[in-house]
Write a protein that binds this DNA or RNA. Structure first.
Lengths: 147, 147
DNA sequence: CAGGATGGACAAGCGGGCTGACTATATGGT
DNA sequence: ACCATATAGTCAGCCCGCTTGTCCATCCTG
């Protein structure tokens, strides 16, 4: 471990870089060239349970002003709409448009493509072990849009 | 795979986030609170074979102006010095100071700490499988300081 | 119903990266 | 030997994403 700690760490970063780059590239190839990784994390939150801009901010670990700016971008590009929240006069619910849902799907496909490439490079049992191990150590972690 | 592609992808990102955050936090705890992840990647290049600012730029995938700025910061903070290159009158070799070497060591220790935590959460054979799998799929990837 | 918490917006600023232009030195072809 | 091209580094100006600070409107709790 005294030597392979840093090596394993570097491998993790390389793999994550591959993934992020692969998703970006796959999205661009599918016609979504105006979204950044952080937008994907926002989509992930919005496509779950109902979300407001403040929810997105908390999810991404950024200020609500920054989140508002990000949401503005996505609204302007036709990925989202802001709808009045019937239960809270202050809040505006973020709703994915058809294009927004298509982008989410495309991102999932692109991510799957990358994972599939990894799977093809490894014996089946080793891929499964890696996948399960990652899921296990990831449970406590939050998802950050930047480093 | 149709469902666990995205799940595995998210796990990779969470794990990478844990690592980056852990390194940052570990460095701060050891007294290096004025370095960012990108600086670590610069150190990695500089502590290898002799490097110039342009080398760092190429390694990080940024412009040489941006790299010069980053190097300025590290020189100002006492992590690096710029020395004349005896073989090229234009170039300035980047040399780690004692503090720079100490920071590199601290970063490696912090990274190892994070990996060690993962190791403790998994059966030994599964950790080994994961580590080997990551190393295998990482070989082709470059290391990006940002996404 | 008062007082604090929360969603959202506006303004200003910062930092890290970018492009563009320039100097000085190296290098390779004629 | 000379000139053309490439490269290391710097200066200047800009942009974009995010920040802090401030404010309003609406909510929830005592």
């Amino acid at each position: 471990m005294s030597v392979d700690g840093p090596v394993t760490a570097a491998a993790v970063l390389r793999v994550a870089t591959q993934l992020v780059d692969g998703i970006q590239e796959g999205l661009a190839r599918r016609g979504f060239d105006d979204v950044r990784p952080a937008h994907g994390f926002a989509f992930a939150r919005i496509s779950g349970t109902q979300a407001t801009t403040a929810d997105v901010a908390a999810h991404l670990g950024i200020t609500k002003q920054a989140a508002a700016q990000l949401v503005d971008h996505l609204v302007g590009r036709g990925y989202l709409t802001r709808e009045a929240d019937p239960r809270d006069g202050r809040a505006k619910l973020l709703v994915l448009t058809k294009r927004g849902r298509a982008c989410t799907t495309a991102a999932e496909q692109a991510a799957t493509d990358v994972v599939q490439r990894w799977k093809a490079q490894l014996p089946a049992h080793q891929f499964a072990e890696m996948r399960d191990a990652l899921n296990q150590i990831a449970v406590t972690g939050r998802l950050r849009p930047a480093w």
